[in-house]
Design a binder for these strands. Structure first.
Length: 665
RNA sequence: GCCAGCGUAGCUCAACGGUAGAGCACCGCUUUUGUAAAGCGGAUGUUGCGGGUCCGAUUCCCGCCGCUGGCUCCA
């Protein structure tokens, strides 16, 4: 006797062994058709899984359930592997092929070790082979084998990666029995569940080919990864592809070019962006805004050079720790070997310089916290494959500061740093971010400093984040080599994550540089350093901002805030007056007195994403008005010149994210 | 750095063994214009760089540089 409880609370009794498929068939023929998999007592299983004795809660999954999408994509990955074996022969080794459901671009991938390289044009061929497998509607069956048998089975198939996985599963998790999934001539080691047959795949597309190291380690062989996506509905697939297409239009590199914000010139060097006038205006606004916020919070601005002695970075540890990701040092004279050579290094960090400023005078507890801030440009030899427009570069400017404080001041300082980062993000409407506390990995040798200090630092960070009420994750191994940190992470247009703001605690550098202050007790004490950067890097931050706003920046940041467009040359004089008045109101204005028709002028400045267009002609001259066209709204009609300028001033000063003029007044 | 793909005018792209072409942008002239592209005319390239095969290379091959998507890395 077996009782099955359904989600609606009804219970069905069976006196024979049943599978979810049988229950579905009992309920209705239509459900039997629609069912794809089942959730039994909270676990996903195949429709064909025989249920063990006892009462069960059962939910049948159809296309409408979110988990079904994952199953669909997983099955599609298997079909792709099967197609590859059919096309390229038994030498094809298939390794792992998971479903991805929260990835912006991709729905699944599978990593292969292929006997020959394949290219983009092969994807078409693979797709049509997959289509054949789908049309055959091959039943997918599950079977369980003892580990040794499974190992032998995959050995016969020449699947050494699968054998390795079986060995690891047995060794690490003590797995004795493994499940295999079979469809036609293809069998894969897999946990499941899967769709009942390959015919259930309604819409899929293979997207791209990439390399991926086996098990994610550089030491291993590079496999061929094929990414694809699948849906139950062709329309959803089309919508997904359209989404990606749209996102690519927001790419910081595309918009950077179109809006003339920056260029990366090959003549200057990869990853070394040149800021064009319009981009410089945008960046300047962010800098002066933040500078104001810093001064208000008791920071002091400093300026330090772009290079420093090699010995400085030997002491700090940056040179030995990050040797491979720095521009090679400038060695002086005869040099000597790398350990002792005299030379200079393009600064990869600002902290050693700021530390020398700290050391410039004797410090008292009364000086603390000492907050030294700099928009400091640093240089790092990022791997060539990593470079990306403004988002990942080799020369970038940190809105850096180092806070030297006493232990009892630490949490307060961390807390105000976190507040500042939150202010930066919220002012710009970047609300979709996640917070990560990066912790030391006790098993790794990359970290320096003693365990007690690490513990204190980690506790302080955790306490501040918890008090702030933010949701966060703790990730081991994500700390800096000298201390733990809080990172603020956002996504770019196509869903890749990037670290922006950061707050880091450091006991190590004060130690290495022998920093001290005299306490109230007249004894020498060691300060703690906090490294923090609310933007992180100006380059990356602005790259993200470009994508976030799709180039349509809020008024206070827009390189050109107003374009004055005379309807014809006859109104140039008045247009000049309007432009003058706007300039006098500290607005960044362009006057378009080209011989184009008004429609062409509007098009030009609209494509440049200028927030406000002032069209002027006979009517406007007579009424001393401007016909306003708002970027996000369209034409709103005539507004008095002074009133319009005043509204714009207000919008700039409040750093508003919404236009101050939405309709004619 | 690794795997795969790509590199043609300022931009977007075409030609793919017979030494390059369109649209936009640019320059000139005409038009003086009312809410997303007025008309006519003109100039524009060592086809990323270097080497090779060939009677002949933008096209095929090799190396380098750069870019794109991933992987790895990210103080």
């Amino acid at each position: 006797m077996m009782s099955i409880e359904l989600p609606d609370g009804s219970v069905r009794q069976y006196d024979r062994p049943v599978r979810p498929a049988d229950v579905a068939a009992d309920i209705s023929p239509r459900l039997a058709q629609a069912a794809l998999a089942a959730e039994v007592d909270g676990k996903l299983v195949d429709l064909s899984t025989a249920l063990p004795d006892g009462p069960h809660k059962l939910r049948l999954l159809t296309e409408r359930d979110k988990q079904s999408l994952e199953i669909l994509r997983h099955t599609t990955a298997h079909v792709m592997a099967q197609a590859l074996r059919q096309l390229y022969g038994p030498k094809v080794q298939y390794t792992i092929g998971p479903a991805l459901t929260d990835d912006f671009q991709y729905g699944f991938y599978y990593d292969f070790d292929l006997p020959q390289p394949i290219g983009q044009e092969d994807l078409k061929k693979i797709e049509s082979q997959m289509q054949q497998i789908i049309q055959q509607a091959l039943p997918i069956s599950r079977e369980e084998l003892p580990a040794a048998k499974a190992r032998e089975f995959f050995g016969q198939l020449g699947q050494s990666y699968k054998q390795e996985m079986i060995d690891d599963l047995a060794a690490q998790e003590g797995v004795q029995t493994l499940s295999l999934y079979r469809q036609g001539d293809f069998t894969d080691l897999c946990r499941g569940p899967h769709l009942p047959d390959t015919g259930r795949i309604k819409a899929f597309k293979l997207l791209t080919i990439a390399g991926a190291y086996w098990r994610g380690s550089e030491a291993n062989k590079m496999l061929t990864r094929i990414y694809g996506v699948a849906y139950f509905d062709k329309k959803e697939l089309a919508a997904h592809l359209e989404h990606i297409e749209q996102a690519r239009k927001r790419d910081n590199r595309v918009l950077g070019k179109q809006l003339e914000l920056f260029v990366v010139s090959d003549a200057v060097g990869p990853g070394l962006p040149l800021w064009l006038p319009r981009g410089t205006v945008l960046r300047g606004q962010l800098e002066s805004w933040l500078r104001g916020e810093l001064l208000r919070r008791g920071y002091q601005m400093v300026i330090t050079p772009h290079i420093g002695r090699l010995d400085l970075y030997r002491t700090s540890g940056h040179y030995p720790y990050y040797k491979d990701s720095q521009f090679p040092p400038i060695l002086m004279g005869r040099g000597g070997d790398e350990q002792t050579a005299e030379g200079y290094l393009l600064k990869p960090m600002n902290c050693p310089h700021h530390i020398q400023i700290y050391k410039n005078s004797q410090r008292s507890y009364r000086d603390l916290p000492l907050r030294l801030a700099e928009f400091g440009t640093v240089y790092r030899m990022e791997q060539s494959g990593e470079l990306n427009g403004l988002i990942r570069v080799r020369g970038f400017t940190q809105d850096d500061a180092h806070i030297f404080c006493a232990p009892e001041q630490l949490e307060g300082e961390i807390s105000s740093c976190v507040d500042l980062v939150k202010l930066v993000l919220s002012t710009l409407g970047l609300n979709d971010y996640r917070v990560r506390i990066g912790l030391r990995d006790p098993d790794s040798s990359k970290y320096v400093g003693d365990a007690a200090h690490w513990q204190q630092a980690q506790d302080s960070l955790r306490a501040v984040v918890q008090a702030s009420g933010m949701t966060y994750s703790e990730e081991t191994g994500e700390a800096a080599f000298y201390g733990p940190k809080i990172d603020f992470i956002v996504k770019d247009a196509i869903g890749r994550e990037w670290q922006l703001g950061t707050v880091q605690v450091d006991y190590n550098l004060p130690e290495r540089f022998g920093l001290e202050y005299t306490g109230a007790d007249n004894a020498a004490h060691r300060p703690i350093m906090v490294h923090r950067a609310p933007f992180g890097s100006l380059e990356r931050f602005i790259g993200i901002l470009i994508e976030h706003f799709a180039g349509a920046f809020p008024l206070w940041l827009a390189p050109v805030q107003v374009a004055v467009l005379p309807v014809s040359e006859k109104f140039d004089a008045y247009a000049q007056q309007v432009a003058q008045a706007a300039r006098a109101a500290d607005l960044r204005v362009e006057l378009d007195n080209s011989s184009d028709k008004i429609g062409a002028k509007i098009r030009r400045w609209t494509l440049q994403k200028v927030p406000y267009l002032f069209v002027v002609g006979q009517r406007e001259v007579e009424g001393r008005t401007v016909a306003v066209r708002v970027r996000s709204v369209g034409e709103v009609g005539a507004v008095g010149l002074e009133a319009a300028l005043q509204k714009l001033r207000g919008e700039v000063e409040s750093r508003g994210l919404q236009p101050a003029i939405e309709a004619a007044t």
